[in-house]
Measured scan of single mutants.
Amino acid sequence: MKHYEVEILDAKTREKLCFLDKVEPHATIAEIKNLFTKTHPQWYPARQSLRLDPKGKSLKDEDVLQKLPVGTTATLYFRDLGAQISWVTVFLTEYAGPLFIYLLFYFRVPFIYGHKYDFTSSRHTVVHLACICHSFHYIKRLLETLFVHRFSHGTMPLRNIFKNCTYYWGFAAWMAYYINHPLYTPPTYGAQQVKLALAIFVICQLGNFSIHMALRDLRPAGSKTRKIPYPTKNPFTWLFLLVSCPNYTYEVGSWIGFAIMTQCLPVALFSLVGFTQMTIWAKGKHRSYLKEFRDYPPLRMPIIPFLL
């Protein structure tokens, strides 16, 4: 059985960083990364991007050496992705923050609204209902991160945790300040508006959870398998008939419901920014589905049925 020789060059300087002799033909890129780490321990596998061309796409960890368009002496180019952190850690951090930050404003801890309001309670029912909904949303997200989601990528750049936390924590503080303010004004149409908004919120939260469970069942634990998601017997998953990412559709719907319930401008802005970002993600995933699966359902749109 022939063996391969693998040289790894710096993608920027073309400097030879490592030479691997007698590499098995069936070795994966993940195994080559581990061998590279032995000579350069500062670059652990998650930091490494190996590619066939200095400006090309990163090879997948599961790619097999003998199936790549290389000879028995293969040249790979290395790029440092920077310090990495696990997706689970990032999600837990960015979701735990809003949960606790919101509660600080809800309980009106000292130095927020003035001494005479310390630890007082709002007289408006919608304020307490909003706290329950907000807390439920982020507790749900935390539990899904721990027990439901299966991540195709193990890590992301460390800098992302600061960007994500600034976004989630900042908006949580902004909306919580106004919703729990002693001078907060309840919704214009009173109980009817709150009940309608609560119904929207609850339905969308159930829908979002149902989609996450359906997506989880598509991917076996520990794998990166991708399949076309289809509706199940659960009615909340029937939205798969019309959109590629109904989890985002339901998520946006939840925040629209919360915005109607609280009639709070920061919540509306958070919903708008979230919708914009999720639309970008949904379009990317939709394109990926179309590219990977020739039999992908043609009627589906990325996030909004028939429109977007």
Rank of each mutant, 00 (worst) to 15 (best):
P246T: 04
F78G: 00
G154P: 06
P297H: 06
E31R: 06
H40V: 01
Q192H: 10
H212W: 08
L218H: 05
E31Y: 14
L242S: 04
C131S: 07
Q48L: 07
L35D: 14
T125N: 14
S86T: 14
H134V: 02
C245H: 15
Y248D: 04
L146W: 13
F306V: 07
L65Q: 06
R79S: 03
I132F: 05
K285E: 05
F119E: 03
A11N: 04
H212K: 03
Y177R: 04
E94C: 08
V23R: 01
H286Y: 03
K233D: 15
A172F: 01
C18N: 13
A30H: 07
V243T: 14
E251T: 14
T262W: 02
C133L: 13
A11V: 09
F258C: 11
K16M: 02
I8T: 07
H3L: 09
E5S: 13
G154R: 11
S210L: 03
Y102W: 00
I132V: 12
F293Y: 08
F91S: 04
R108P: 09
V267P: 14
N234M: 04
L146K: 06
I200W: 11
W281R: 03
T37Y: 15
A30S: 08
G154M: 04
K291L: 01
R216P: 04
V88W: 08
E24G: 09
P297K: 00
T37K: 15
Q192K: 03
R294M: 11
P187F: 06
V126A: 08
D10C: 04
T72I: 08
K227M: 09
R47V: 13
P186A: 15
T166R: 00
E5G: 09
E31L: 06
I132T: 11
I132C: 01
N234C: 15
L99M: 05
D295V: 11
K60Y: 07
H124C: 04
F78I: 05
E7T: 00
G154I: 01
A176V: 02
E62G: 11
L242W: 11
L99C: 10
G154V: 05
K2E: 11
F236W: 02
A214T: 12
F306G: 01
H40P: 12
M156F: 00
C165Y: 11
Q192M: 14
P110L: 07
G71V: 10
F100E: 03
V127Y: 05
F100N: 10
K224A: 06
D63S: 13
I260F: 07
L198V: 12
L104M: 11
I161A: 14
I85T: 11
D118C: 14
T188M: 14
M261S: 02
L92V: 06
V127G: 03
Y296W: 03
A83S: 06
D53Y: 07
I32R: 06
W43S: 06
L35Q: 14
D10H: 13
H3F: 12
Q263E: 09
Y289C: 08
F91C: 00
D217A: 14
H26F: 02
S49G: 02
Q48M: 01
V202F: 15
V88P: 14
L68P: 11
N208R: 01
G257T: 14
G71P: 03
Y178I: 14
G284D: 11
K224Q: 05
H124R: 08
H3W: 12
P235R: 07
T188K: 15
E94D: 03
I101N: 03
W238S: 08
G114E: 05
L92G: 08
G190I: 14
G222K: 00
G257D: 11
T73I: 05
V64F: 09
A27T: 08
L81T: 15
S271D: 06
V126G: 04
L20D: 05
Y168S: 01
W255F: 15
I132Q: 14
L299V: 10
A46P: 12
F171M: 13
P182I: 04
L142Q: 13
R14G: 09
P110A: 08
S271Y: 03
G56E: 00
R51D: 00
L242H: 02
L198Q: 03
F275I: 12
S122W: 08
Y296V: 01
H128Y: 06
S135L: 07
E94V: 04
E31K: 05
E144C: 01
I304R: 01
R159C: 07
Q66P: 08
V148M: 07
Y177G: 06
V127W: 04
Y248F: 12
V90I: 08
K22L: 10
M261K: 00
R226M: 07
F151Y: 09
V88Q: 01
K291I: 00
I256V: 10
T28A: 10
I101F: 09
K60H: 04
R108G: 07
R150V: 00
I303N: 08
V88L: 09
C131V: 00
K224P: 13
N208Q: 13
L242Q: 06
L196A: 07
H181N: 01
E15C: 06
T155L: 12
L59H: 15
K22S: 07
L307F: 02
A96S: 06
I8Y: 01
I8V: 11
